[in-house]
Nucleic acid binder design. Structure first.
Length: 896
RNA sequence: GGGAGCAUAGCUCAGUUGGUUUAGAGCAUCUGCCUUACAAGCAGAGGGUCCGCGGUUCGAACCCGUGUGCUCCCACCA
């Protein structure tokens, strides 16, 4: 078969992926093997594949493929998250484009559209993961709103409610006025903004001259003011406490009160209290028994209802329905007109925004469902302990701090959302406002009828008297069950699959969702399985562009991933993203890394071509005996390098240092295998290769593909099969166990490489063309060792002859390597000046090194204190350096 | 405001208990090569005040203190 000049990935990738699928290699069922389980962080159904997913899923695929090749029962579960708020926003936008307002639809009508949308667009991302080569068990694809999953969420809600861990209450919550729902604290992102600080004066109500000046960033809330607060120790205001002032525009009388909460040196030292629109004001209001006047509706528009009794004026009426930001401008204008604005300062502040819609968050008093986190954690002390004591290991470990700090300061979790897309809260209310929480409406009615002492009607459609809560649950209230419920561990507890696969082995995710998801999965894991959901958590960094900026749509610096796969091949994309991804750190993505990946694939391809050329050129044995011993040296050396790197990679993988593992393999293949080994065993022009050497070479190549496969699955599988007829696919091939490498053989190989490089350097410096042969004279105490590798040496430095000598050789230039000297003889006039210079530089370096070693050894305190092996090492350094200096000096003498 | 982390070659990063490290890799750079697997390549080379200062130690890139610069997380001083 003719192999193409360069490696062409497209067809190869599609074919192999289909083949693996056809063979069912990715499917897992429980058996006697040890499981290796990864549950994929479910992307939003609305998602499309981006760089973050690419990094994340490449890492998971590497882990799972390596496990599959190491005797484990590898199971990687795909799926998607219904992503309540994000998806609902998309569906609302889609409907708006079609001219349909959400408010014109019933809940059921809206949900029908949402499901339609989900079936059409949801899960595109899973198809895209196939392009990347992800070896997911597609039979297990899950969705957080699958029927069983849905039920499991209700079950958990009901259960936690029964345990007293869930309560309903009117609290200050983060309110998104765009999506019209409450949000948890974690869904609020604080952003720096340039705003203004308005100094507004409040006149005394008794008509006496003057008043008090208050600094505020939110003048639009003035009409909801209920008091002015100062610090009790603030001498400027101490006499004013108890006096009343007038709220601008509406002239409501409000008191001046004192509380230590107020900072005297901020603004004017006087704070206006608006309990309806600020968390701290609300706390202060409650403390001082103040009335709450809500002036904004759910969409952030002005409402006057609460103000009407006070003083409805034309002006106030003109504010009704005005948006909060517009209102701010209007009110500032209006109070400026009546001379109540003293000054306006520029102010840098922070404002909370909705993670999903970007809308500025309002604090709003509303009735919501919460989880009592303190109590929950008291019931589950392992949530904190398991991470602290490494029962669950975090990589990198620094994430442990973030985790424990958050848990230590945890607030109650608001889990209700005023949305339709999601699990509807299983709570029913009767006419009197009594609540019945149950997994089904039937059960809720049972409780209801029992409570009022009425017999339960015989048919469910005769049930009356209850209405279900309109709200749905926070998305994360379903995703925290993911590692359990993908195996039906909640809906069908104790089933064989859950028993076998849970706890999962490794979680790979971003640091950004440590609170949203990781911590909560650990909570649910202990609460419902009594076990952690995973053993290791590998946190990936964030993917940035090469300038270090976050990837974002606005910046347009987010590359088109599928386009890149098209252009470079999935293997190259996987290689590129991983090679530039240090463990646990952010990675600067640069397309040149993909080029490196593509080049590497091409290198593999060409090595394959070379070996395939030899296939037909095998001879029984090599006629030249010396050539055979030489090749045996190359084989022994590479076999040991292979086992050395295998051991190294094992260690790196255990520490999740995937990038370094890949680099080690890359260098083993490119440098050791291609640049050295293959050149060493390469037969001369149109010559035969010993069958034994050929077979060994193919074996090495196969082993390299085994090592490489998890990282670049497609090309490795392709090369593996093109090398020779195989009885298995690489995808499920089990890794070989290697012996410990022989250090002596390895160091002999290193020395040979060093000799070759030094001689080539000397050739270069004398402008010897590659084709110009030299005569080599070697002065060494270990002649047999060099005799054994003579043919490699002569081939690699283009020496037409090699002689051994006991003395310097006239009219040559000399190269010193370790204790040996190499004399290069050429027909060309050689210039010893640069080499002499190099030798002098080296000599100087060695001498100063020797001096430092001698100084150390001459130091009595060193000899007394240092460990014996360290002293021994220093002695050896001294001896070696002395030898080296002698060799250099002799070489210099020979040059003169 | 509180907490965590980082600073090593032009760039991105390794450097494990302080001692074969007067410091390594990849990419980039420079020089020479169209050598019959590969120019998406081959061979070779250059490049560092280990952020500054102080300390501990026989010995510091590594430990301690301090200064500077940067990053992230948490926290709504209106």
């Amino acid at each position: 078969m003719e192999l193409s000049k360069n490696y062409i990935p497209t067809e190869v990738e599609t074919n192999w992926y289909q083949h693996w699928l056809d063979k069912g290699y990715f499917n897992s069922t429980p058996d006697e093997r040890e499981p290796y389980t990864i549950v994929m962080p479910p992307p939003n159904v609305t998602g499309v594949l981006h760089m973050g997913h690419c990094l994340n899923n490449t890492i998971q695929d590497i882990l799972i493929r390596r496990a599959r090749m190491s005797g484990k029962n590898a199971c990687w579960v795909p799926g998607t998250d219904h992503a309540s708020i994000a998806t609902e926003a998309k569906v609302v936008a889609m409907l708006r484009e079609r001219g349909i307002a959400k408010s014109s639809l019933t809940r059921d009508e809206f949900l029908a559209y949402a499901w339609e949308w989900k079936e059409k667009y949801g899960g595109i991302i899973l198809q895209q993961l196939k392009k990347l080569g992800c070896s997911l068990d597609w039979n297990r694809t899950s969705f957080t709103m699958d029927p069983d999953y849905y039920k499991s969420v209700l079950k958990v809600f009901t259960d936690l409610h029964e345990k007293g861990l869930i309560y309903r209450g009117k609290r200050m919550v983060n309110w998104d006025p765009v999506s019209l729902t409450a949000l948890s604290d974690e869904e609020v992102i604080f952003k720096d903004v340039n705003s203004k600080l308005y100094y507004v004066s409040y006149k005394f109500a008794d008509g006496s001259k003057g008043g008090i000046s208050v600094a505020t960033t939110r003048p639009e809330t003035i009409l909801g003011d209920i008091a002015i607060c100062v610090n009790p120790t603030d001498e400027r205001y101490i006499n004013l406490v108890g006096k009343e002032v007038l709220v601008p525009i509406i002239n409501r009388k409000i008191p001046i009160i004192a509380d230590e909460y107020v900072t005297a040196d901020f603004g004017t030292g006087a704070l206006k209290i608006t309990p309806a629109h600020d968390k701290n004001d609300n706390i202060l209001g409650a403390k001082h028994n103040l009335k709450v006047i809500d002036t904004l509706d759910e969409a952030g528009k002005f409402v006057a209802t609460d103000l009407m009794e006070d003083n409805p004026s034309e002006l106030v009426l003109s504010y009704v329905g005005v948006d909060r930001f517009e209102l701010r401008k209007k009110i500032v204008l209006d109070i400026t007109a009546i001379n109540l604005v003293e000054k306006i300062e520029e102010y840098k502040g922070q404002v909370g925004t909705s993670e999903r819609t970007g809308a500025v968050i309002e604090h709003r008093l509303s009735l919501q469902w919460f989880i009592d986190m303190e109590k929950f954690l008291q019931n589950n002390p392992e949530v904190m302990a398991s991470v602290a004591d490494d029962t669950i290991q975090f990589h990198p470990a620094k994430a442990k701090n973030t985790y424990s700090h958050w848990l230590g300061n945890i607030k109650d979790w608001c889990i209700s959302r005023q949305l339709w897309w999601g699990q509807r809260i299983p709570a029913w209310y009767d006419a009197n406002g009594n609540v019945y929480v149950a997994e089904t409406s039937a059960e809720a009615y049972q409780k209801y009828y029992a409570g009022i002492g009425v017999a339960v009607p015989d048919l469910a459609d005769k049930y009356t008297g209850l209405t279900q809560d309109e709200d749905v649950l926070d998305t994360w209230f379903s995703s925290w069950l993911w590692p359990m419920e993908v195996f039906k561990g909640i809906s069908h507890p104790g089933n064989d699959e859950a028993n076998y696969y849970y706890p999962s082995t490794t979680l790979v995710t971003g640091q950004d969702i440590i609170f949203f998801w990781v911590a909560r999965m650990i909570m649910a894991g202990y609460e419902y399985a009594g076990q952690p959901p995973f053993k290791d958590v590998y946190f990936t960094g964030m993917v940035r562009d090469k300038l270090g900026r976050k990837m974002s749509k606005q910046l347009g610096n987010s590359p088109d991933l599928l386009g890149l796969i098209e252009q470079y091949g999935a293997d190259a994309v996987r290689f590129g993203i991983l090679v530039s991804s240090p463990a646990g750190n952010d990675l600067m993505f640069d397309e040149s890394a993909l080029e490196q990946g593509r080049n590497f694939n091409n290198k593999l391809w060409n090595a394959l071509k070379l070996v395939k050329m030899w296939e037909a050129r095998q001879g029984a044995t090599d006629s030249d005996q010396s050539n055979l011993t030489t090749q045996q040296f190359a084989i022994d050396w590479f076999a040991n390098r292979l086992s050395q790197v295998n051991t190294e990679v094992d260690g790196l993988m255990k520490q999740f240092r995937l990038s370094e593992a890949l680099k080690a393999i890359y260098s083993l293949i490119w440098d050791d295998f291609c640049s050295w080994y293959l050149e060493w065993v390469k037969p001369g022009f149109e010559q035969q290769i010993a069958a034994e050497v050929y077979n060994k070479t193919v074996l090495f190549f196969e082993e390299l593909m085994v090592l490489l496969h998890p990282f670049v699955p497609f090309i490795s599988e392709e090369v593996f099969h093109l090398l020779k007829e195989q009885t298995t696919d690489l995808c499920i091939r089990q890794a070989t166990t290697f012996n410990l490498p022989d250090a002596l053989i390895l160091s002999e190989g290193e020395l040979l490489k060093q000799v070759i490089s030094s001689l080539r350097d000397a050739r270069n410096k004398n402008q010897l063309k590659p084709k110009e042969a030299i005569k080599l004279h070697i002065q060494t105490a270990s002649e047999p060792a060099y005799k054994a590798i003579e043919s490699i040496l002569s081939k690699q430095v283009n020496a037409e002859s090699i002689h051994f000598t006991n003395d310097s050789v006239a009219n040559t230039i000399v190269v010193a390597v370790e204790k040996d000297k190499f004399y290069i003889e050429s027909e060309k006039q050689l210039d010893s000046a640069t080499l002499k210079n190099d030798l002098l530089k080296d000599l100087q370096h060695q001498q100063s090194f020797l001096l430092s070693v001698q100084k150390k050894l001459g130091n009595e305190r060193f000899v007394q204190n240092a460990k014996p092996e360290v002293i021994e090492l220093e002695r050896k350094k001294q001896a070696d350096t002395e030898d080296r200096i002698r060799t250099i000096e002799e070489s210099l003498a020979a040059l003169n």
